[in-house]
Every structure is written in structure tokens, then in C-alpha cells.
């Protein structure tokens, strides 16, 4: 009896040793040198593999950032400054300055603003609808409302508002990875600089048609009249292709452009109710 136990123990141990030896030599033979910092950087990244940095996944981003000497064009929008600081520490480099951004949907074509002129009855996919025709309204630029951006969002930061038929962004969840920007076939979503208290001023329209047809398609379309451009003291507003654009890097949130817009295409969000002109002046000085 004892001999059976002994033989079992010995033979199994021998087997184990032989296997270990083989594994050791194979591992030695096929060893590939890898910068250990790649693992460290990957560890520091959020690990969402969202592709917001432009790479296929966090590992690829880590490889690229270790290989490169600078942080030029390399940023993890999800992790933000904190993560980048950690990476800088690992790589012994200077921390890059990156401003947090947030996605904004530049279309306000709710059913009451934008008349429905047909009924779409195809695959529920914006790109397919976009290649087919203008969509359920006459606006060839506006949101198609089929939610491809929402599907693309990995951070639960978007949902479709069933009443307006437009996507809504939850600012707190948005990490500005840009997945929705890429998903939208009509280029409606933009990443804008994140402001204090999630305040936003932007032209909620991307219609490049002339005033007449744009207005006909949607009541709150930007008609490219240029009134906002004139009133802006900070060169933040430019007009091209019959469309105004407010540069979020230059805008100081003075809100002067909002009331002059004849169609109400410029939206101001998360602001307190308007104060008197004098107080507004003070606000501007502070800003």
C-alpha cells in the first residue's frame, strides 16, 4: 500500500519537474523584450478600451506613449488630467496641460421646431438613413434621431429623449472620448471645452443651407445672418457656409449673442436667470 503511495508521489513529482523545465526553457527561448513601463502605463489607464485616444485600445495607447518622446497628440480623454499626470510620473516627463471637454449635440430639431415630412421605415441606423435621404424632416443636416451615437457611447453618458427625438448628453458621465462624434454620420456632435457649472453657449444647428431653405426646414435653424458675429467682442464667433460657429476656446460666456439670434439657434444652458445689464457687466469683468 505504502509503495503505491510512494510511487504515485515520486512519479507525479518527476512529471512536474520535467514539465517545469520544459516550460522554463521555452519561456527563455521565446522571450520578447518589452518595456516594463508599457505595463505600468496600461495599469494607470482607465482600461475602457474606448478608442477615444485614437488607438484601438489602452494597450496600444500605452505602447505609443512609451515609444514617443513627447505627449504630442497623445491624450487619454477618459482619464483626463489625473491619469495623464500619473503617466507623466511613470515616464518621468512633464505633465501636459489638457482642458476637459464635453460632447454637445448641435441640433435642436424637435418635432415642434422641425416639421416631419416623411416616415422612415428602414434599418434603425443613422448611417443607413443618411445615405438614403434627408431623413424624416426636410433638413439634410440635422439629427436623424436613430441613436447611433447613443449606441456608440461606452460611458452611459447619452440617451435618446423620446419626446424631442434627439440625443441628450449627461455631462457628468461624458468623458469626451469622441466615440459619438465619430459615430454621427452628419457630424452634429462636437467636443467643446467644459466650463464652470457645465455652462454652455453654442449654436445648436449645423445647417449650411441659405437662410430661406434652412428656415423652411426648421424653425430654429441658423440662417447665417451674422448678427451674433457682430455682437461678439472676443472673435469667438465665425460664419462660414451660412452657419455660425462659436469657438469654445475663445468664448467667455458673456451671453450677448444669445438674444440677438433671430431664430433662437444659439442655446445657453445651465446659466442662472438673466440679471440686469449692469450685473452682467460685472460678471464679464470677473470672467
Amino acid at each position: 500500500m505504502s509503495s503505491v503511495v510512494l510511487i504515485t508521489i515520486i512519479s507525479l513529482s518527476l512529471l512536474g519537474i520535467i514539465a517545469a523545465l520544459i516550460l522554463y526553457f521555452v519561456a527563455q527561448k521565446f522571450k520578447v523584450y518589452e518595456d516594463p513601463r508599457i505595463d505600468q502605463v496600461e495599469e494607470a489607464l482607465p482600461g475602457a478600451n474606448c478608442g477615444g485616444c485614437g488607438f484601438a485600445g489602452c494597450r496600444n495607447f500605452a505602447e505609443a506613449i512609451v515609444k514617443s518622446d513627447t505627449f504630442d497628440g497623445l491624450n487619454c480623454p477618459v482619464g483626463g488630467g489625473e491619469t495623464m499626470a500619473k503617466i507623466a510620473e511613470i515616464l518621468d516627463r512633464k505633465v501636459p496641460e489638457v482642458e476637459p471637454r464635453v460632447a454637445v449635440v448641435r441640433c435642436n430639431g424637435t418635432p415642434e421646431h422641425r416639421k416631419k415630412t416623411s416616415e422612415y421605415n428602414g434599418a434603425l441606423n443613422c448611417t443607413i438613413a443618411n445615405s438614403l435621404y434627408t431623413g424624416e424632416s426636410d433638413c439634410p443636416y440635422g439629427c436623424l434621431g436613430l441613436g447611433e451615437c447613443v449606441d456608440a457611447c461606452d460611458f452611459n453618458a447619452m440617451y435618446m429623449d423620446s419626446e424631442t427625438g434627439l440625443p441628450v448628453i449627461i455631462d457628468d458621465n461624458c468623458v469626451a472620448c469622441g466615440a459619438c462624434v465619430k459615430a454621427c454620420p452628419r457630424n452634429i456632435i462636437e467636443l467643446r471645452k467644459k466650463a464652470r457649472k457645465d455652462r454652455k453657449i453654442y449654436v445648436s444647428c449645423v445647417n449650411e443651407d441659405k437662410g430661406g431653405p434652412a428656415r423652411k426646414a426648421c424653425k430654429v435653424a441658423c440662417i447665417g445672418c451674422g448678427k451674433c458675429e457682430k455682437v461678439c467682442n472676443y472673435d469667438a464667433i465665425t460664419i462660414s457656409n451660412n452657419l455660425a460657429f462659436i469657438d469654445s476656446d475663445k468664448c467667455v460666456f458673456c451671453r450677448k449673442c444669445v438674444p440677438v439670434c433671430p431664430t433662437g439657434a444659439i442655446l445657453e444652458l445651465n446659466f442662472p436667470p438673466r440679471k440686469t445689464a449692469k450685473k452682467e457687466q460685472e460678471e464679464k469683468v470677473k470672467a
Binding site: 416623411s118 416616415e119 422612415y120 421605415n121 438614403l132 435621404y133
Partner: peptide
């Protein structure tokens, strides 16, 4: 009623 539009 509105016309229905769908891909072929």
C-alpha cells in the same frame, strides 16, 4: 398621410 421612405 406622410409618405413612407425606406431603402430598397
Amino acid at each position: 398621410k406622410l409618405l413612407t421612405v425606406s431603402p430598397s
